[in-house]
């Protein structure tokens, strides 16, 4: 078991955001986290990254995984859209050595990940000149520099057009097939149901966690995912 969360509860500015959340992630899983705005998705992401302490409950990491070994793809921010940095600089910043300069091994790793994401030809380009889809690939390559096992993706396709979204999903699929465990927070329930091995649905009083098959049996969830259309 890579991650085991038990009875997690959070408060945010005096308001209960998540309560009694229990779930686990195994090696090789593809867990999609869905839920309405304000249901606590971002809080959960912060907690998994160790940036927020739960009021109650525990998060345990197993199989020798450390919280700092999660490859994190944050939501895109405005501030980055005019940041002067080359693609290579951004990807290298995912390597977490303490040395003042990057080692040869880190540079190799960075180059490998850029190739994997199909952005090696952009290495010297400025991050701010890239399209949204390209920027996400760069940030995904950065996330891969910090992990070999677990990716945590926060709304990876938000703000991307449909074609680019599909391309990015196929990249993520390929990574999952390579054996990397994926936790993906998303608005896109339809897509989530297609990809995920497990679903986590955050909802005020009752959260759902289980295999994707069971999720489709649950009435509440069916309503959230837009009715019957997955039953063809």
């Amino acid at each position: 078991m890579l991650i085991k969360c038990e009875d997690l509860s959070f408060e945010y500015e005096g308001r209960q955001v998540l309560s009694g959340l229990t779930f686990h992630v195994d090696e090789g899983d593809f867990l999609c986290v869905v839920g309405e705005n304000g249901s606590g998705k971002s809080t959960l992401v912060k907690a998994l990254l160790g940036l927020k302490k739960p009021q109650r409950g525990s998060i345990e990491f197993g199989d020798g995984l450390k919280p700092t070994q999660i490859g994190y793809l944050p939501q895109r921010t405005e501030a980055q859209s005019d940041f002067p940095a080359s693609v290579r600089e951004v990807v290298l910043s995912g390597c977490r050595s303490r040395a003042p300069f990057h080692t040869r091994a880190e540079k190799t790793r960075c180059a490998d990940n850029m190739k994997l994401m199909g952005i090696d030809s952009l290495a010297s380009r400025s991050f701010r000149e890239l399209s949204g889809g390209q920027q996400q690939r760069v940030l995904l390559a950065r996330a891969l520099c910090g992990t070999e096992r677990l990716l945590l993706l926060d709304e990876p396709t938000a703000g991307l057009d449909p074609i680019v979204t599909r391309e990015l999903y196929s990249v993520i699929d390929a990574l999952h097939e390579k054996g990397i465990t994926v936790i993906m927070v998303t608005h896109d329930v339809v897509e989530a149901l297609e990809k995920a091995t497990h679903m986590l649905h955050l909802h005020d009083n009752h959260n759902f966690f289980g295999p994707t098959g069971d999720y489709l049996e649950c009435d509440d969830c069916r309503r959230f995912s837009g009715g019957e259309h997955r039953h063809d």
């Binding site: 990254l49 160790g50 940036l51 700092t68 994190y72 944050p74 940095a85 910043s93 995912g94």
Partner: peptide, 14 residues
């Protein structure tokens, strides 16, 4: 650089 470009990511990676 890491802190300037993306503080949350930097913090999460230790």
């Amino acid at each position: 650089f890491a802190v300037t470009f993306d503080e949350t990511f930097a913090k999460a990676s230790g």
